[in-house]
Structure formats: C-alpha cells, structure tokens
C-alpha cells in the first residue's frame, strides 16, 4: 500500500474511497481543506483581530497552527490565544502545559483566565454546590468568558476548534431534541447580528474529521498524551458521538453527509428563524442574551 499521489509510505487511510496518503501529501490535503473553508465562508479577512480559544488539545492547537500560519503571511491580521482554566483537577493542568509550550514556541500571545479567579469557584467546586450537570455549567461559563474577554482584547472574531464531528453531533442532537431553531444559529461562521458585544465565531476546521486533526497534531508533536475530560462520559453529546462513530465506521462518510445536507438547508433555516431573534441585554452584566438575565449571571447568582 502506498500514497495515492507519490507512492510513499501512507499515514492515513480513507475508507470512503479506499485511498491513502503519506505524511507530506496529508499535510497538503488538510491545509488545502482548511484554506478552502476559510475562503468559501469568508472566515478571515484583512485587519481581523482573532482570539483563538485554546484548551491545549489537538483541535484548538491545530486551529491555532493554521491561523498563525495565515497571520504570519498576512501581517494585518492579529491573533491572541485565550485559554479558559475551568478548574478540573488532574485534567486541565496537563493540557495547559501543551498550550503554553505551543504558544511559546510560535511566539503567540497567550491569555489565561480561570473560573476560580473570575467566579470564585473551580468547576469541580461548582458541580458540588449547584448540583447541575458539569457540561451545562462549563458550556455557559466558558462561552461567557470567551465572549467578554474577546471584547476586552478588542478582537472582532473568535476562532474555535469545532470540527466535522462536533457539528454533526450538534445537528443530530438538535434533531433528536426537536431544537431545530438552535441549528439555525450554527455553521462555519456564526453571529448573524452585527453587534460589538457579539463576537463572531469562526470554525476553520469545520470540514475536518477528528482523525485528520488528531493525526495532524500527533505528527506535529502538539500534544503530549491522551487526556480526556473526566466529566465527558456523563454527557448526552458523548452518547451521540459514540453512536455516530460506530455508524460512520460501518457506513463511511455519514458525518460528512450530515454536514453537507445541513449546509444545504442552513440558509433556509436562518431565513425562517431570523424574525425570532430579538437580542436583549442582560439586566445584570449588559451582555447580549435572549432572556432578561443571561444564563451566566443566573449561575453566578446561584453560586453566591
């Protein structure tokens, strides 16, 4: 078995078309795919200040690597890496090491914000205090911090490491829970309302599989080992993820088909639900919200 382009030793096999690529052809293939996504959906433009949300994991460091490469060529683009330390013992401290090492090596500014310093408690402490699902608390407070800190840093875009798997899981989860309106807010670039308090989110790895990203990170030595969030198994998303991985194994290309068909109907969904978006400002913190008080402030009040 040899690379389909250059006859070198392959590092990845694509079951969808029974082909394989060597390391250098795989790097070219992945970079080309990311650049096409960025170009097609206009994710990055000159003079952007992009905050890249990183965790120290493979997805975020791969995102940062590609955006940094673009910023090094287009000098008007500024990037800042932001890491949220939720305070998950024996987990986040390990990935922070990889994140710091990556940023130092590539001379990228890294800002670290913690739940403990911002809200007074670590996620581990919040779970005991609030008796809520870890992913619910973490998701709300992480989004809140990323949005407010991006404003503080005068950024106009927020890049995340969301990939084909994350997005296909979200599409299916929203179908299963009859939450199609939430799907209307998804896509490679989000934030339909031009609002200074609403930092647009971009997902350069939108069409990349986790295996492609994991392999890229592994071959580049971005990550030091396998680290899994100890709360991951408890989530509904994890069940959907396992189901889709098993299904995609049996019927290769399933996740890609979910996303392609979703992108076909996304303009229709956005059009259907655009009148439903009535943006308000939180009565406590002034951040954008769909309710009187944002979810983050509601959680913070419960902690006091």
């Amino acid at each position: 078995m040899v690379c389909k382009h250059c006859l070198s030793k392959p590092v990845i096999y694509f079951p969808i078309n029974s082909t394989q690529l060597c390391k250098s052809c795989f790097f070219r293939y992945l970079e080309s795919k990311v650049k096409k996504t960025i170009s097609k959906y206009k994710l990055i433009e000159p003079k952007d200040h992009i905050v890249v949300a990183i965790s120290g994991g493979k997805d975020s460091l791969t995102t940062l690597s590609f955006i940094n490469k673009i910023a090094n060529k287009q000098r008007t683009i500024k990037i800042t890496a932001v890491l949220i330390d939720e305070g998950i013992s024996n987990y986040r401290s390990k990935t922070i090491v990889d994140a710091k090492k990556f940023c130092k090596k590539n001379k990228i500014t890294l800002k670290v914000y913690s739940f403990k310093k911002e809200f007074g408690f670590t996620l581990d402490q919040m779970i005991i205090k609030l008796k809520m699902k870890p992913c619910t608390i973490c998701g709300v407070l992480r989004r809140y911090l990323l949005n407010t800190k991006s404003q503080l840093l005068n950024a106009n875009k927020l890049a995340t490491g969301h990939n084909l798997e994350d997005e296909s899981q979200s599409v299916i989860m929203n179908q299963f829970r009859n939450n199609v309106e939430i799907s209307a807010r998804m896509g490679p670039i989000t934030g339909v309302i031009i609002n200074k308090k609403f930092i647009r989110r971009i997902k350069p790895l939108y069409l990349c599989t986790e295996k492609e990203i994991g392999l890229f990170a592994f071959l580049n030595g971005f990550i030091s080992g396998y680290h899994e969030c100890p709360y991951a198994e408890q989530s509904y998303r994890q069940d959907v993820k396992d189901m889709l991985n098993n299904f995609d194994e049996k019927y290769p290309g399933t996740k890609y088909s979910i996303i392609q068909s979703f992108l076909e109907i996304l303009p229709l969904l956005k059009n259907k639900y655009k009148s439903n978006i009535r943006l308000k400002y939180c009565i406590s913190c002034g951040e954008p919200t769909s309710k009187e008080e944002c979810q983050a402030c509601q959680l913070i009040k419960k902690l006091k």
Partner: peptide, 8 residues
Amino acid sequence: IIYVVSGG
C-alpha cells in the same frame, strides 16, 4: 493504539 478523539 493511540486515541485521537477527545471527550467532552
């Protein structure tokens, strides 16, 4: 066997 998928 190296896992490349992360949880959470």
